[in-house]
């Protein structure tokens, strides 16, 4: 006899609440994100880095291809804010250009790799059987292949403005671990009522995966995409450091750090500006990732 009564009170409270605006999930997450010190600091840092990288070259009198033949290896001054290199290039201009490249490459590679992880993991977990075995095997194969070596061997193909290919190859070696996690979560999600309901209504499996499975993993994927940005930036820098990534005449933070390290002991400005800005960028991205994880899933602070 209690059941109808409960339903009745539920209906009443629902009517009573109809006038009140229920905050959306996005607002709640944003509120939690900006409520934490890490989140605010990380967001402010990254915004500052972006502003510097993309607005800085507009106010600087030098472009990254300019050479000042009156100042070689000059320390920072009013004319050259970050000093100059051995070639006479303005350190501020080349560093900003390198940061633009690193940021764009990092963001794109993270997006592509997270998308790959979501689709491959979800397909493997949803269909199981042979699909799962094949996809898991490919995942394991890519984990076993030495990523640095493959990217380095392919580096001649990235020259001449082919950097989108570089972004894709970078992403190809970043998605495997997340895809394993996505697969595991899909296997358990598959048995939930709303998926079963969609299946019995005759919705096609592909549609179920894209409309129901992947949106339900969005919090994991958002955090993963953020952390992949820093992983991609670090990989890109390391490859470029050894001359395997972004190819000259274009510059990236990695090539600048490699050149700067040789002259750092007597011309510190050639090394520390590029290295410092790289560290600040990655630090900001990691802080945002951490704050996002807490904001999307308040219980995760303890369990991870």
């Amino acid at each position: 006899m209690t059941l109808p009564e409960e339903q009745l009170t539920e209906q009443r409270s629902a009517v009573a609440e109809a006038g009140v605006r229920v905050p959306s999930r996005g607002r709640v997450v944003a509120g939690r994100f900006f409520g934490s010190g890490w989140g605010r600091a990380g967001f402010a840092l990254l915004a500052a880095v972006f502003l510097l990288a993309f607005a800085g070259p507009l106010v600087s009198p030098w472009s990254y291809t300019d050479k000042d033949f009156t100042a070689f290896m000059a320390p920072p001054s009013a004319a050259h804010w970050f000093g100059t290199l051995q070639t006479g290039a303005d350190v501020f201009a080349v560093t900003m250009r390198g940061m633009q490249k690193s940021l764009v490459v990092g963001l794109l590679a993270a997006l592509v790799s997270t998308a790959l992880a979501a689709v491959i993991g979800a397909f493997a977990g949803y269909f199981l059987g042979w699909t799962d075995r094949m996809l898991t095997w490919v995942t394991d194969l890519l984990l076993v292949l030495p990523a640095f070596l493959i990217l380095a061997v392919m580096s001649p193909m990235f020259a001449g403005g082919q950097w989108p290919l570089f972004v894709f190859m970078l992403a190809l070696f970043l998605w495997m671990v997340t895809s394993k996690v996505v697969r595991g979560m899909t296997v358990s999600l598959k048995e939930r009522e709303f998926i079963l309901a969609a299946r019995f209504m005759g919705v096609s499996p592909t549609r179920i995966i894209f409309r129901h499975v992947i949106p339900n993993l969005s919090s994991l994927l958002v955090v993963d995409a953020t952390l992949n940005v820093s992983a991609a930036i670090l990989t890109e820098t390391s490859l470029s450091y050894f001359g395997f990534g972004i190819q000259p005449p274009d510059v990236s933070l990695g090539t600048l750090i490699a050149d700067g390290a040789k002259t750092a002991s007597y011309a510190p400005w050639t090394f520390w500006f590029a290295a410092g800005l790289l560290i600040v960028t990655v630090l900001a991205v990691n802080m945002i990732g951490d704050a996002l994880r807490d904001a999307l899933d308040p219980g995760s602070r303890r369990s991870r």
């Binding site: 820093s230 670090l234 820098t237 390391s238 450091y241 050894f242 990695g254 750090i257 490699a258 390290a261 750092a264 002991s265 090394f271 290295a275 790289l278 560290i279 600040v280 990655v282 630090l283 990691n286 802080m287």
Partner: peptide
């Protein structure tokens, strides 16, 4: 650890060398 995780090995190694020479 947050700061160390933001420093790639290539930069860390060079910072160590610069620090050691100094």
């Amino acid at each position: 650890s947050f700061i160390v995780l933001a420093v790639p090995t290539v930069v860390l190694a060079n910072i160590l060398i610069i620090g050691a020479v100094w």
